[in-house]
């Protein structure tokens, strides 16, 4: 062992090694990777069709009472039926901002897949601690911040990939882009996803790094999961919620993430709203990332 040590001081070296380690567990495991792809299809086809609110009012669902029908000629009835169907898409349009519920929901789903993926990825830090891997890494020259960042980045990259898959799958299922959509908007969508994922995974890692049992993060996630999902605009517009729920949903950063993405993908883009979405999510991400990294870093430096 006489050869001299060639040590590069680049922090990126260790960061990529650790990030890639996490990602390898996913893309190198065929079953896991396959399920990653299948899961959004199931979600979209099942939920998208089960909750297809647009189909509530359609030619099939409209039957006129016989005594009412008797007062009109068949042509008039046809026109009336047309009117109601038109009303349906009008209601959809004014409620959801788009006439296609699956488009509305698909964007919500992209954000929530990101949320779930960051949550689950964060759990790997518990195993790293239990299995002694964390201690081993701590004894190498890799900086503490890099250890935390690698977790954050692997979760973020994975989430963004999953969101992309949902978007791709949603297109053949009837996804309708907004009138002023350009492919450039996709960059904005992923910038939004990046912000929320970095923020959330920093938070989850700070929580998880302190627990020695896998049950703790599980409980935390179960607690946060539903409120973050349903007290947001993911599946239903906030304006139609009761006032108290609106207050919760309006504070929920997920709502802004989703709105921002919808502005870019399916809505007739409202630039002021979009700017506000970015500012809100940006601040949220900055605060959580700073807090998360500082808390994790302090823990690792005990």
């Amino acid at each position: 062992m006489s050869e001299t040590n060639h040590v590069s001081t680049s922090k990126l070296h260790g960061l990529w090694a650790l990030t890639n380690r996490e990602l390898k567990k996913w893309y190198k495991a065929p079953v896991v990777f396959f399920l990653t792809l299948v899961q959004p299809i199931i979600w979209l086809t099942l939920l998208g069709n089960a909750l297809n609110l647009g189909s509530l009012v359609s030619a099939e669902t409209i039957t006129f009472p016989p005594e009412l029908a008797a007062q009109f000629t068949p042509t008039q009835l046809g026109a009336l039926s047309q009117f109601f169907q038109g009303l349906s898409s009008q209601v959809m349009g004014s409620t959801f901002g788009t006439t296609s519920y699956i488009s509305f929901m698909a964007v919500g789903m992209m954000a929530f897949t990101a949320l779930f993926t960051t949550m689950f990825s964060g759990m790997s830090v518990v195993w790293d601690r239990r299995l002694g891997f964390l201690n081993k890494v701590l004894s190498t020259p890799v900086s503490r911040a890099v250890i935390i960042l690698s977790k954050v980045f692997s979760a973020t990259l994975r989430s963004m990939f999953q969101a992309l898959i949902i978007l791709i799958i949603a297109i053949p299922l009837g996804f309708q882009f907004g009138v002023n959509f350009t492919p450039l908007n996709i960059i904005g969508v992923f910038a939004m996803l990046f912000l929320i994922c970095v923020g959330l995974s920093s938070l989850f890692i700070a929580i998880n790094i302190r627990s020695t049992r896998i049950e703790t993060p599980m409980a935390v996630m179960n607690l946060l999961n539903l409120p973050l999902t349903f007290a947001s605009s993911a599946f239903f517009p906030i304006e139609k919620m009761p006032a108290w729920l609106q207050a919760v949903a309006n504070a929920n950063p997920m709502s802004y993430t989703i709105d921002g993405m919808r502005q870019l993908l399916i809505f007739n883009t409202d630039w002021t709203k979009l700017a506000f979405d970015f500012v809100y999510v940006g601040i949220f991400a900055f605060v959580l990332t700073t807090a998360g990294i500082v808390l994790s870093w302090r823990f690792l430096n005990k």
Binding site: H6, V7, S10, G14, K28, G132, F133, N135, S139, T140
Partner: peptide, 30 residues
């Protein structure tokens, strides 16, 4: 220093070779 911990810290999902390369990367070895 080199450390051989009490636990089995190698990543089960990676191969032996990949694990060693990972360790090398942590030390910044080209």
């Amino acid at each position: 220093i080199g450390v051989v911990p009490q636990e089995y810290t190698a990543d089960e999902d990676l191969t032996g070779y990949e694990n060693i390369i990972l360790c090398a990367d942590l030390y910044g070895i080209p």
